[in-house]
C-alpha cells in the first residue's frame, strides 16, 4: 500500500528551478533510491519531503497532505551526508536525543540506545564524543540516531558518499541489513548506482531537476528510459543506428533504435557471432578490458586473463543478451563511456 506519495513537487531558488514537477510513490516497508548526478536536485527533493525547503505541490503520507505539518511533526528522520551529530553531546546522548524529546522513561531509553548502537556495530561507544570518531563511525551514529526516532519514513541524504570506497561498500551492505531488520520505509539519495543497487528495492532516476524514470530496481535496470539514464546506471556504452541493429541481431534480440551495453556484454571467445580487431588493452585484477573495432563500430569487451591478446589481433566475440538493454530512443552522446 502506498505510504509516501509526492505529486507535482517544485522547488526553486530565486526563480531557478531545482526540482521540477517531481512525482514519487513508495510502499510501506520498501527502500527507494533516488539516483542522479551531483547538482541534479535530488538532495533538494529529499529536503522538500522533510519539510526543510519551501515547495509547491503535495507531499502525502497515507493520503494525508503534509503541507501544514512542520518538519518536527512529520516523523521523517533525515540523515545528513556528514552526519550532523550534536558536537557537545556524547554518542549515547546523540542517539538518545529523539527518545528524550518524546520523554521516554530513562531505563527504557538507555536500553534502546544500547540496542541501536549494537545494531550499527558500535556497542561500547556510548561515552565517546563525536569529534573522536572516524567518518564511518560518525555515519553509523547518525544512522542509529535517525532510527531512534522510530521514523515513519527515514530519509538518507548521500549517507555513504563521504566515506572511502572500501568502507562505503561494507557500510552499504550493513545499511541494507539494518533497514531490513528495522522494517523501515526509507528514501535514499545517492549518485552511486552500485550503492543504490546494494541498498534499495525501488529506483527513481533524476536528471536536471526532473525524475526521468522510476520503478522496481530490476525493471529500471533492465530497461533504461534513455541513453543518459543507461550510462548513469552503469552501462558502459550506448550504440544506435546500424551498429545497434547489428549487435541486437547478434544477441538474438528484436530490433530497437539503440542499445546499451555493459562492459561485460561482449566476451572474447574462440568462435562467436561478432568479429573485430583489438585497438586497446587494459589489464585489471580480474580480467582484460578491451576496445574492439567491429563492423558495428568500437565496442567494449572483456577477456579472461589467460587469453594472450594485444592491439592489432583479430578476435571473435560472444554476446550476452542479459548484459545489454534495448533502448527506445537514439543516443545523443553515444561515445560517452563510464568506468
Amino acid at each position: 500500500m502506498t505510504a509516501l506519495s509526492v505529486r507535482g513537487l517544485c522547488v526553486s531558488y530565486d526563480g531557478t528551478p531545482a526540482v521540477a514537477d517531481a512525482a514519487l510513490d513508495l510502499d510501506e516497508g520498501r527502500v527507494l533510491a533516488v539516483l542522479g548526478p551531483s547538482g541534479c536536485g535530488k538532495s533538494t527533493l529529499l529536503r522538500a519531503v522533510a519539510g526543510l525547503e519551501p515547495a509547491t505541490g503535495t507531499v502525502c503520507w497515507h493520503g494525508e497532505d503534509l503541507a501544514a505539518t512542520p518538519t518536527h511533526r512529520r516523523g521523517f528522520a533525515l540523515m545528513f551526508q556528514d552526519g550532523q551529530l550534536f558536537p557537545s553531546l556524547t554518542v549515547a546522548r546523540n542517539v538518545g536525543y529523539p527518545l528524550r524529546i518524546r520523554r521516554t522513561p530513562r531505563a527504557e531509553a538507555g536500553a534502546r540506545v544500547a540496542e541501536l548502537l549494537d545494531l550499527v556495530g558500535l556497542a561500547g561507544f556510548g561515552d565517546r564524543l563525536p569529534a573522536t570518531l572516524s567518518g564511518g563511525e560518525r555515519q553509523r551514529v547518525a544512522l542509529a540516531r535517525a532510527l531512534a526516532a522510530s521514523p515513519r519514513l527515514l530519509l538518507l541524504d548521500e549517507p555513504l558518499s563521504a566515506l572511502d570506497a572500501g568502507l562505503r561498500q561494507r557500510l552499504a551492505v550493513d545499511l541494507r541489513r539494518i533497514l531490513l531488520a528495522a522494517g523501515t520505509t526509507a528514501v535514499m539519495v545517492t549518485h552511486d548506482h552500485e550503492e543504490a543497487f546494494a541498498v534499495a528495492d525501488d529506483l527513481a532516476v533524476m536528471r536536471a531537476g526532473r525524475i526521468v524514470q522510476s520503478g522496481p530496481i530490476a525493471a529500471v535496470w533492465r530497461a533504461p528510459a534513455d541513453p543518459e539514464t543507461a550510462l548513469f546506471l552503469g552501462y558502459a556504452r550506448v550504440l544506435d543506428g546500424p551498429a545497434a541493429s547489428r549487435l541486437l541481431f547478434a544477441a538474438g534480440l528484436p530490433e530497437a533504435p539503440a542499445v546499451a551495453l555493459r562492459r561485460s556484454a561482449l566476451t572474447v571467445v574462440a568462435d562467436g557471432p561478432l568479429t573485430g580487431t583489438v585497438t586497446e588493452v587494459r589489464t585489471t585484477p580480474g580480467q582484460l578490458r578491451l576496445v574492439v573495432r567491429t563492423d558495428a563500430g568500437d565496442v567494449d569487451a572483456v577477456a579472461s586473463l589467460d587469453r594472450r591478446v594485444g592491439p592489432g589481433d583479430a578476435v571473435d566475440l560472444a554476446v550476452d543478451a542479459t548484459r545489454m538493454a534495448a533502448l527506445a530512443g537514439p543516443s545523443e552522446r553515444a561515445e560517452r563511456t563510464l568506468d
Binding site: H72, A148, A149
Partner: peptide
C-alpha cells in the same frame, strides 16, 4: 543543518535551539 537534523528527529524549533 544541525538545527534541521534536530527538527527531523522531532525537536520543535525551541528544543532545537536548546541542543
Amino acid at each position: 543543518r544541525l538545527r534541521q537534523a534536530a527538527a527531523t528527529l522531532g525537536a520543535s524549533p525551541t528544543r532545537a535551539l536548546l541542543v
